[in-house]
Measured scan of single mutants.
Amino acid sequence: MDETGKELVLALYDYQEKSPREVTMKKGDILTLLNSTNKDSWKVEVKITVNGKTYERQGFVPAAYVKKL
């Protein structure tokens, strides 16, 4: 869990989004878990840094590609 009590997951593999509802992640990324009720895909939040500014983006990733921490 992070400092706000949200559950975290670790990306086990790289994943490139295939639709606007998904998010891209790299192996080793730590993501905030938002919903894990679907056995196939979990909703997560990723933090992306562009030019020194951090943005948050929500979307789905394959459940088999992440592990709860």
Rank of each mutant, 00 (worst) to 15 (best):
E56D: 10
E22S: 06
E45C: 15
D2E: 13
V50N: 07
M25P: 01
L10C: 12
V44K: 00
V46H: 07
R57F: 07
Y15L: 02
K6C: 15
Q16D: 13
V9T: 00
T49H: 10
V50R: 10
W42N: 00
K68D: 02
N35T: 06
G5R: 14
N35K: 05
L31E: 01
K18H: 07
T54R: 07
K39G: 10
Y15I: 01
I48L: 09
T54F: 08
Q16K: 12
T24C: 07
T37N: 11
P20T: 09
T37Y: 09
L34N: 02
M25E: 01
E17Q: 13
E22T: 05
K26E: 03
E3F: 14
Y55W: 10
K27C: 07
R21K: 11
L12A: 02
V50C: 12
D2S: 14
S41D: 06
D40K: 12
D2K: 14
E3D: 13
L10E: 10
K53R: 13
E56A: 15
D40E: 11
V46Q: 12
F60R: 02
V61K: 01
V46A: 08
T37P: 03
W42L: 02
A11Y: 04
E45N: 07
G52W: 04
K68Y: 08
E7Q: 14
G59Q: 01
K53T: 12
E22V: 04
Q16I: 14
K53V: 14
V23H: 02
K53M: 13
M1P: 13
P62L: 07
K6L: 12
T49V: 13
S19K: 05
D29Q: 14
D29T: 07
L33C: 05
I48Y: 13
K26Y: 09
L10V: 15
L69N: 01
K18W: 03
P62R: 05
G59M: 06
S36F: 05
V50S: 08
Q58C: 08
K26H: 10
K6N: 10
T4K: 12
L8T: 07
E45S: 15
K27G: 03
K53P: 01
L10F: 08
V61E: 00
G5C: 15
G28E: 02
N38R: 09
K39I: 10
K6G: 11
S19C: 10
K27A: 11
Y13L: 09
D29H: 04
Q58F: 06
K18Q: 13
E22H: 04
G28Y: 03
G28C: 09
L8I: 08
N35V: 07
G59I: 05
P20V: 09
G52R: 02
E7I: 15
T4N: 13
W42G: 00
L69W: 07
F60P: 00
M25Q: 02
Q58M: 07
L31A: 07
Y15F: 06
Y55Q: 08
L33S: 03
G5F: 13
S19H: 11
